[in-house]
Design a protein around this nucleic acid. Structure first.
Length: 211
DNA sequence: ACATTAATTGTGT
DNA sequence: ACACAATTAATGT
């Protein structure tokens, strides 16, 4: 476990810090589809993603969801930073996309490390930046892309995250995450299939090529 | 193996 | 967006 920690985070952190993380961090496992952070909950520790993948979702007052971005190993949840430090409720929901291992860092430590380790500061600021960029990216795609282009982008992301050309989701699930209707997704997927870019099966989609 | 039912996907308006 | 048809998977007998 400590080994995998070092593998993923060595490029970011110096040796001392890695050891401190190993000492105070609590390892937590989340099964696929398990909710890791719920909207409105308070966080007392900050997660570092070791393996697997997490999707971060927003929900409106009707309970409609919208996928904001994915987190991969080596990432952290930017929302949890503001959340922990400001004692605010979580504005987002985090769900394990795959079976996932996390290291939970207690808030006190992360504050302490901010001053103590330059590499930690950089990591935090850096991840803040990349999350923000990803958000801008999804905002762009909602504002400027048509639904069919959004779907292709979604499929690409899914493919990268699971690193498999086969996606196991129903049309309905995809529709939820993109906050649209299932019929729209079905039609667009059918179109992609007839273009030979994907193959549709029940409960799964095989990606041939998305160019 | 067959029938029944539920869930998922396809299509027309 | 809605309604309904068609297809597929899951379950019980």
């Amino acid at each position: 476990m400590v080994l995998s920690l070092k593998e993923k985070f060595t490029p970011y952190f110096e040796e001392d810090l890695l050891e401190e993380i190993a000492r105070v961090g609590i390892i937590r496992h989340a099964a696929e589809n398990e909710r890791i952070i719920e909207i409105g909950s308070y966080l007392r520790s900050m997660p570092l993603l070791v393996s697997g993948a997490i999707k971060v979702l927003r929900e409106d007052e009707n309970g409609d969801e919208l996928l904001l971005y994915f987190l991969e190993p080596g990432d952290t949840c930017a929302m949890s930073l503001t959340c922990c430090l400001g004692h605010k409720k979580s504005e987002i929901r985090a769900v394990a996309e795959l079976d996932t291992t996390l290291i939970m860092i207690p808030v006190q430590k992360m504050e302490e490390w901010m001053g103590k380790y330059r590499s930690w500061r950089n990591f935090v600021l850096e991840s803040y930046h990349t999350r923000l960029m990803e958000m801008l990216d999804t905002i762009d795609s909602i504002a400027f892309l048509k639904m069919d282009e959004r779907l292709v982008k979604y499929l690409r992301d899914k493919q990268n995250i699971g690193k498999s050309p086969v996606i196991n989701s129903t049309h309905q699930e995809i529709a939820y995450e993109m906050n649209t209707s299932r019929v729209v997704i079905s039609r667009l997927l059918k179109k992609l299939e007839s273009m030979g870019k994907i193959i549709l099966r029940r409960n799964s989609i095989e990606i041939i090529s998305l160019d």
